[in-house]
Simulated assay, not measured.
Amino acid sequence: MVQNAERRRDTTKDHLRLLARVARMYHEQGMRQPEIAATLNISQPRVSRLLKEAVAQGMVRTVVTLPEGVHTELEEELQRRYGLRDAVVVDVEDYQDDVIPPLASAAAAYLGVTFTGGDVIGISSWSETLLATVERLPQKNSQVADRVIQLVGGVGSPEAQVHATRLVARLANLTYARPIFVPLPGVVATTAIRDALLEDPGVKDVQAQWHDLTVVLVGIGSLEPSPLLLSSGNAVSQADQEELRGLGAVGDVCLHFFDATGKPVDSAFDQRVIGIDAPTFRAVERRVGVAGGMRKLSAIRAAIEGGWVNVLVTDLTIARLLCA
Rank of each mutant, 00 (worst) to 15 (best):
L103E: 07
A239I: 12
V206Y: 09
R8K: 11
R320N: 07
R245T: 12
N173Y: 10
A106T: 02
V70Y: 01
L103W: 03
G275H: 07
L78A: 01
D91Q: 00
D94R: 06
V92S: 02
N234I: 05
P201N: 15
V155G: 05
P179E: 09
H211I: 11
M294G: 12
L228K: 08
R282H: 02
I42T: 10
G112I: 01
Q79P: 04
I42S: 05
L16C: 13
E6M: 15
V64A: 14
I42N: 11
L198P: 07
A56Q: 14
Y176I: 08
Q29R: 15
I123S: 02
V63Y: 15
Q209K: 12
P101E: 00
Q150A: 09
I180E: 15
T280I: 08
C323Q: 02
E68D: 06
R320D: 08
D91N: 02
M25C: 08
V162Q: 06
R147K: 10
K296Q: 11
A5T: 04
S237P: 10
T133H: 05
L19V: 05
F258T: 04
T314E: 02
A5Y: 09
R17T: 10
E135A: 08
T314Y: 09
N310E: 04
M59Q: 12
A319I: 00
L66Y: 13
A107F: 00
R9I: 13
I121D: 01
Q241V: 06
G293L: 12
Q241E: 09
G246L: 12
W308T: 03
D277S: 07
T175N: 03
T175L: 11
S231Q: 07
Q150Y: 01
D86M: 04
F115K: 02
E68T: 10
S298C: 02
L78I: 03
I121A: 06
A177F: 14
G221I: 14
E159H: 03
M25K: 11
L244W: 08
